[in-house]
Design a binder for these strands. Structure first.
Length: 797
RNA sequence: GCCGGAGUGGCGUAAUGGUAGCCGCGCACGACUCAAAAUCGUGUCCCGCAAGGGGUAAGAGUUCGAGUCUCUUCUCCGGCACCA
């Protein structure tokens, strides 16, 4: 018999599919599905098995949806700007353009070898000028609408990579904080003028609209935590003997009567004025200087509370006539709230600080032992008009109303989310389309000069300023267009900017008049299904949502959220259960496995390993299972002929139902399991009816596109199986004629009986009573009988 | 510390509150073979010859019936964390 030669078959059909363009995106004259993978960074080391997992899942889903009759958009592209290519250039002198293009060629080849059904006509690369001209357009769009601005900022600076990092990029992949995400070097603080996108303007919507999308709950929670929305009050305090006012923020207004002192962040702008001319001035200012020098890492590392008394007192609006000492404290963060905090005995951190520096405390709940304000529970004492009241959500509202009406406080919402710093002192990114006039004022580069080309005459070696500064061409271009004395912006954009809008581009990838036409956007976006790694739960998704909301605000799109349904693929671990890493040498290269077993086997194996979202270890021995399965399907052709399904009819119909249901809900492992069960049943038959086998091939087609296409053609078909319709099942034939029912006594299974499908309680009981083994357990006069048709009969004595 | 998620055979895993362990890997035995591989068949949670009993991290609860629901505890994973 002929051999299952995966190499020949897979190559043959991949070529055929390309030739006949069977995965070309159709017109949207019928319901559409936009099914998207997070586009990869084309790294030099190629595709890894984690990519294969996510891409196979969306491929199966796309093929399924096409067979169901949907117009499917399923594209692929390259998140091609980024540091690795630039670091490689620094090391070897190879231009990033060259190494990136080579990596893309390799990625594309690997992806095509897997039989993934992308529409390559819509391929995009973030590093191509016809792409980044629109990235630059987005910058101008935000700038013109007041959502981008340049300002001085204390920024995270990586001394090794010589670049600014966003807060999010100061955590290593292993979770170490205060280090460069790329190289692990401890991050320093630097004051620089930088471009920001005002994502904080959308903070409320970014929280609220999470309720409208079908995303993993944990991802939504991560987003909410990152935004860190907190409702509370701001209380102004007059500083005695000055004309200064300090504003504190509190998210626990019920406890404000407890506060006895105030702390202020070392970098707070009012600190110098606060201590100016006082005895404490020099001591305080040197404390502040010492605190500022510390890197984020050092600050985070030691949680030791350090502080110094300013010599000043604030008047307590909650207790007329009482004064609260004002301290500088290292735990007060300028980045949160107002940078000034009212402190009390009901906060573990404040309490520790007060003990250390012998600051007097009082309590408003309990008998003096520690009660945490975060619990928001207890009966208030010594709390003005609220003494004796029990803390409750209603009381908190009442207290806030009282504070507001007495002019003590104002309502305030704060966020942890910061504006998005997008300036990067790097080469391999989209140039920021800004020029400076001779007096240093920034001007947007007019749209007719886009793409504002990334120059190639640059020095890659980092010298502490941006590489674009070394480009003669860029400087000359700027002066030629704008006039003598004009200077180019030499920073490039954070690569997350490129990936914040690429899903729009796929809808209209070749448009040279707009990032995508309104018609194309209306036809395809938002994305119906988005699949990618869980490592992007915060940054990329947040930024893409921000871009979408900005477009919505200014009338470019009509929807609020870009990704309606999101799923993550879990990490695939090495065989020993640890993370795959080059340094440990335990990385599985998909090419090797595809070579040995074939793409269909690798696809099926990765889907069969377990639930898509689960973290699971690779098991080289386990691959043989799906391979054997495909070989058995291959051999089954010999048994195809004229015959009846007989005993396999119920399993066959169940399989049609379950495979469809499971693909829809991403239970791809159980869908494959069901296909195996069905095959086992087919193998019991003397002859497999041709129609049933063809249906079976259609069910298997999304998983193993090459093998099913080959067998489909062997059966005499001349068109692709992937253009067939998804099979339907016979509702009336889902159950076998005979069912096995568990017979229980008081919930304990005592045996089983075989009865015809749909048998009544009386019929089942009659059969059970005739069963000698069972009869001995059955109670004569059951007090209760529970009967679930086709499942159980339970007699309670 | 806070917020999520998860604990089931030797392994990956499966079970609308209804016979726990489907499907696959591995292993054992058998068939085929001079032999091996491949393939096919049988078996494979634990104790027990069997009848039977026990069993889904531990303990309690709800229920005729709990891997599944509730509470307590333990462990592991992910995220956030001096956040006012």
């Amino acid at each position: 018999m002929r051999e299952y030669d995966h190499k020949a078959i897979e190559k043959k059909w991949q070529d055929e599919w390309t030739k006949h363009q069977i995965y070309k995106t159709p017109k949207t004259d019928r319901p559409k599905q936009y099914i998207l993978d997070m586009f990869p960074y084309p790294s030099g080391s190629g595709l890894h098995v984690g990519h294969v997992e996510g891409y196979t899942a969306t491929d199966i889903y796309s093929r399924f949806k096409r067979m169901q009759g949907y117009a499917v958009l399923h594209p692929m592209g390259w998140d091609a700007f980024g540091l690795p290519a630039e670091n490689y250039a620094i090391k070897t002198g190879t231009p990033p353009q060259t190494s990136t293009d080579a990596a893309i060629v390799n990625f594309r080849k690997q992806i095509q070898a897997l039989g993934l059904s992308y529409d390559w006509d819509r391929e995009v690369g973030a590093h191509n000028p016809d792409y980044y001209r629109w990235t630059q357009w987005f910058f101008l769009f935000l700038f013109k609408n007041g959502l981008a601005e340049k300002r001085m900022a204390r920024v995270n600076w990586c001394p090794k990579d010589q670049t600014v990092l966003a807060n999010e990029q100061t955590v290593s992949e292993d979770g170490v904080k205060g280090v460069c995400v790329r190289c692990g070097t401890p991050v320093e603080q630097k004051e620089l003028s930088q471009w920001f996108f005002k994502i904080t303007e959308f903070a409320d919507d970014l929280v609220k609209d999470l309720d409208t999308v079908d995303w993993p709950e944990s991802t939504k929670i991560n987003q909410r935590n990152w935004i860190g929305r907190k409702e509370g009050v701001v209380v102004p305090h007059v500083v005695s003997g000055t004309d200064l006012t300090l504003h504190t923020f509190s998210a626990y207004p019920a406890w404000l009567f407890a506060d006895t002192f105030i702390v202020i962040a070392p970098e707070h702008p009012l600190v110098p004025a606060l201590v100016q001319g006082t005895e404490a001035e020099s001591a305080v200012m040197s404390f502040v200087a010492a605190a500022q020098k510390k890197t984020t890492e050092e600050r985070g590392d030691s949680k030791e509370k350090l502080g110094i008394f300013t010599g000043r007192y604030a008047e307590d609006p909650f207790r007329k006539g009482e004064k609260m000492p004002i301290w500088i404290a290292n735990f007060a963060l300028m980045d949160f709230g107002t940078g000034v905090i009212r402190c009390s005995s009901h906060d573990a951190r404040d309490y520790e600080f007060a003990q250390k520096y012998e600051i007097p405390l009082r309590h408003v709940v309990g008998d003096g032992s520690f009660v945490d304000a975060h619990d928001n529970a207890g009966v208030l004492i010594d709390s003005g008009p609220f003494t004796g009241r029990t803390i409750s959500p209603e009381l908190i509202v009442e207290m806030i109303d009282w504070m507001v009406s007495h002019g003590i406080a104002e309502r305030k919402v704060t966020y942890r989310l910061r504006d998005w710093l997008i300036s990067r002192q790097r080469y391999w990114g989209a140039p920021i389309p800004v020029v400076y006039d001779p007096s240093g004022v920034p001007h947007p580069v007019p749209e007719e000069h886009l793409p504002w080309m990334l120059p190639t005459d640059v020095e890659y070696q980092p010298k502490g300023s941006a590489p674009l500064g070394t480009s003669q061409e860029l400087i000359e271009r700027t002066e030629r267009i704008f006039g003598p004395g004009w200077k180019p912006e030499i920073d490039t954009m954070d690569t997350f900017v490129c990936s914040s809008w690429y899903f729009f581009r796929f809808a209209d990838a070749k448009n040279s008049n707009a990032f995508a036409s309104p018609e194309a956007i209306a036809a395809w976006v938002p994305v119906d299904l988005y699949v990618g790694g869980a490592e992007h739960t915060v940054l990329h998704l947040m930024y893409a949502r921000f871009f979408t909301k900005a477009l919505k605000r200014f009338g470019y799109v009509s929807f609020d959220e870009p990704f309606l349904k999101l799923r993550h693929q879990g990490t695939i671990l090495a065989e020993d259960g640890t993370k795959m890493s080059k340094s440990k040498g335990n990385v599985i290269n998909p090419d090797d496995v595809v070579e040995l077993y074939g793409a269909d086997t690798v696809r099926m194996y990765e889907m069969f390993m377990g639930p898509l979202e689960a973290m699971k270890p690779w098991n080289t021995k386990g691959i043989i299972g799906p391979r054997r399965f495909l070989e058995r399907v291959w051999r089954l052709t010999d048994k195809v002929g004229d015959g009846a399904l007989g005993a396999a009819e119920a399993v066959f119909n169940q399989t049609i139902k379950k495979v469809g249901d499971d693909i829809q809900t991403f239970g791809l492992n159980t869908a494959i399991s069901q296909l195996m069960i069905c095959l086992n049943a087919f193998e019991e038959l003397p002859v497999v009816p041709r129609a049933a086998f063809e249906t079976y091939l259609k069910l298997l087609a999304p998983f193993a596109p090459h093998l099913t296409e080959e067998l489909w053609h062997e059966l005499g078909h001349t068109t692709s199986i992937h253009l067939e319709s998804w099979p339907t099942y016979d509702d009336t034939k889902l159950m076998a004629d005979t069912v096995v029912i568990a017979v229980q006594v008081a919930g304990k299974t005592r045996g089983t009986v075989s009865v015809s499908h749909g048998a009544s309680q009386e019929q089942v009981l009659a059969v059970a009573e005739r069963d000698l083994k069972l009869a001995q357990y059955l109670p004569q006069t059951p007090s209760r009988v529970i009967f679930v048709p086709n499942k159980i009969l339970n007699l309670v004595p």
